[in-house]
Design a protein around this nucleic acid. Structure first.
Lengths: 145, 145
DNA sequence: CAAAACAGGACTCTCGCGGTCCTGTATGAA
DNA sequence: TTCATACAGGACCGCGAGAGTCCTGTTTTG
């Protein structure tokens, strides 16, 4: 269906939340979950993935949480998607891991597939996170809980 | 994983096959399956979907088969994908059928999602089928079987 | 030292993909 | 006219990835 996974969806929502808040603001998983109306374990899992990918920096301990490591203008939607669901490759052919498409000898379309993938990747790379935060005003935490 | 379904993959391979052959050439499912090295039922299912979407015209009966209804230059990769897996909508939010995302009140990202989808759709709409057939030479049917 | 918060797994359940097959209908050739 | 061919439109089923939860660390603050 050419669908993003839910995790990627959540990731963009959460990242947008960071982009909307003051820079370097540390927010913890619990508050983010409440504000987004999502279950804490799910949010936590997503944030961890973003942390591993370097799209968020994490702070442990009581006053811990996450914050953006760089300005929202320098983070792209493509990065967020790749952080949660791996490299953007529309077909198995292009996943370098599995180059056994079975119909290879009769599948010279393969080289042309690169074109499709590149087009989609470029499209997503050209959308900065800051764009996703425009005209978006999240309600303050107090009003949510 | 932001993957195309296999059917969409097959559809593009098959359509490319038509684009490579002489215009208006009628080809049946059996031969296409053999040449593509794919099982007949699968190929058949895919061709039927393409037919329903108007991307192929079908002819029943003994000398039946399928052929392109218009030049390959006028068919886009986006159309082929949509024919097999429905409208290109990366998130459920955008699928008009289900506008119950549950976190709506806190999800103004929604409007910005349109931007992402539009970008991807445009990217795919800008790739004509004829582009997929360049430098592609399918082996003649005789050599395959 | 205790509580808060992240890290990294394992685990289960469900749903859609994937492939196949069956019945019906149209068409061309013997 | 009859039969073989080929498409039309379903139903059907197994498997695997996605989605969500939970548990056990480790780090940090007060």
């Amino acid at each position: 269906m050419l669908r993003l996974t839910r995790q990627a969806d959540y990731a963009i929502v959460l990242m947008t939340h960071f982009a909307g808040a003051p820079e370097k603001k540390v927010q913890n998983a619990r508050d983010l979950a409440k504000c987004a109306g999502l279950p804490l374990p799910t949010v936590s899992k997503t944030l961890k993935a973003l942390g591993r990918a370097g799209l968020l920096v994490s702070y442990r301990g009581v006053k811990g949480g996450y914050s953006l490591p760089r300005p929202a203008e320098e983070i792209t939607v493509a990065e967020i998607i790749e952080a949660t669901e791996g490299p953007i490759a529309l077909t198995e052919c292009l996943d370098t891991a599995t180059d056994e498409c079975g119909i290879e000898f009769c599948c010279p379309v393969r080289t042309n597939w690169q074109r499709i993938n590149q087009a989609v990747r470029d499209a997503l790379r050209n959308i900065p996170l800051s764009d996703m935060a425009t005209t978006v005003t999240f309600p303050p935490l107090e009003k949510v809980q």
